[in-house]
Structure formats: structure tokens, C-alpha cells
Simulated scan of single mutants.
Amino acid sequence: MTPSIRKVPLTHGAQWLLRAINLGTRNPRAIFGAALLLIAVLYLVMYVFTMPLRLGGEPDLEGLFRILAIAMLAAALVLPVLLGGLMHVIREAENGRPVRARDLFAPLRLHRTLPLALLGLIQIALALICGSLLLWATGEDFWAQYQEMVRGAITGRISTVPTAEQPALVALAQLLFYYFSTAVVLVSVPQIMFSGLGLSDAVKRSFGASLWNLGSYLFATMLFMLGAMLAGLLVSVAALVVMVLGASVTPMLGHLLAWVLFTAYGMAFLVVMCGTCYYAWRDVFAQDGDGAAAGGATPQPPARQDRFEA
């Protein structure tokens, strides 16, 4: 039986985020190991598909955009599968079941790869719709000026930054794109992984839930993005400090320490994002006893939500 969509209070958005922050206390080796593996796989995908840039000499601007577009398409198809695997690891750890970092590839074993990958096409479709709105809102000369600015940046020339004819409409189009791409695409991942829904049903139900729970979704998104920006700023400052300190020993050490900090930030970002979406799915969609139905074990009681854990 397909669970109904629940209307949840605004404050649940904060609870999802707090519980996601505390996720690492369950099985940190598996959860953060899976996040690190996810980053490595995405890096490998981008490295492979941008290899023509390193082997074929310096391409023209059109060739550069074409290679980058293919690489981004490949990453867009792979990313939902990896996010589904990370949510699987989070779910197993949350329910107290044994799980390892390599269970990131559980969607392949559970035959969820194709519908999850197709979510990437939904993301691309939303991006194209947003791009069409932006083309209309920015005016005819904006993109020509933008391409000229990119050429200038590549060749070292300073160009004037183009301005949109309707900046308010541009901001609105971007806001709608980011909201629905997050609320619809990301929340569809656990529906496909754990509720057994097909692609179309998962997207329809996620879209309905994004409207029905607009307040809690927006509240969670706002808190998450604010926290991510503040944490990113702190990590950037810390990376600059350790880079300078490490460079006093050897430049390679400084770059290595900065890379470690940014990788740790990326891992935490992925875990909290996927954890927030997982708890949103469980709160809005999943029926009682869902963990037992899907995995064979009764879910453990959630950790306290009124405090942070290191």
C-alpha cells in the first residue's frame, strides 16, 4: 500500500536538519566512508569524461563547452544513484543494522539504478526550463555578452559583467529551480529506493508533497543553506590558515591540508543533505513500521533532537 502524503508542521524542517547533523554518531565509519567514496566516484566520472581536454590539446570555446556538457550529463545521471546508495547506508545505520561504506553501490544490487539515474534527466529538464526562463528574462544581448566575458576570462582580458533586463524574474526563476530540483528530485530518491515506487509515481508524489509541505520544506532548505554557507566560510578561512602554515614546511603540505579540509566539508555536506532528505521522506511519506517492512528490522528510536552531538 502506498503511504499517503502527510502535512507536517513548520518546525519539522528544523528537526530533520538536527537529526541529520547527529547522524555520524550511529556508524560514522560507514556513513562518512560512503560519502568519501561518493566524492571519489564523481571525481573519477568527471576525470574520465574531461580527458579529451588533456589529450587533444587546447580546444576552442565551443569544443570546451561540448566536453564539459557531456561530463556534466554523465555526472547528473550518476549522482542520483550514488545519493540513493548514501541514503541506503544512512538508513541501515539509523536502524542499527550492519552496513559498510561500499554499500553505497546498493542501488545496483537492488535494481534501482535505472529509475534513479533517470532522475538526473528530470534535473536536466528542470535546468532547461529554468534556462529558457532566464533567456527570456535576461534579454537578447545578455548571453552574447556573457560568452564574451567567458572568452575574456580565458584569454586574460577584462570584460564588462552583463546585466539582466529583468533581474527580479531571474532571481525568481533560479529560486523555483533550486527549490523544485531539491524538493522533487532529492525526495524522489528515497521513494524509489525504499518505497518501491516507479519514476513517474515518485516524481508526482514528491511534487505534491513539495506543495503540501511548502513551509517545512522551505524552512529546512533555508536552515541547511545558511548552515552550509557559514560552514563553508569557516572552512575556507581555516584552509587558508593551514595552507600558509603548511607552506612554511613545504608547499605540497599546505595544499594537502587544505584539500583534506575541503574534502571533510564535502563529506559533511553530503551526509547532512541526504540525511535531511531521508528524514523528510520518512516523516512525510513513510508509514509506521516502514523500516521493518523494507529491511527486516525494527527501526531504532531516533536520537534526541534538542541538542547537537559532536
Rank of each mutant, 00 (worst) to 15 (best):
R6S: 07
K7G: 06
P9W: 07
W16H: 06
R19D: 03
I21N: 06
N22E: 11
G24Y: 10
T25L: 14
L38S: 04
I39E: 11
A40V: 03
V48E: 12
F49C: 13
P52A: 01
L55F: 00
G56S: 02
E58N: 04
M72W: 10
A76V: 10
A76P: 08
L77G: 00
G85P: 05
V89A: 10
E92L: 13
N95R: 06
R97G: 04
P98N: 03
V99G: 01
V99S: 10
R102M: 12
R102T: 10
H111V: 07
L114F: 10
P115S: 13
L121S: 05
Q123E: 14
D141F: 07
G156V: 06
A168K: 08
Q174N: 12
Y179Q: 07
F180V: 13
V184Y: 05
V185H: 01
L186I: 05
S188P: 07
V203L: 06
M225Y: 14
M225R: 08
M229C: 02
A231R: 02
L233A: 12
L233G: 10
A238S: 15
L240I: 08
V242C: 09
V244M: 12
A247C: 04
S248C: 10
H255Y: 15
W259E: 14
T263F: 10
T263H: 04
G266K: 02
F285K: 05
D288F: 04
D290M: 14
A292S: 10
A294S: 13
A303Y: 06
A310L: 15
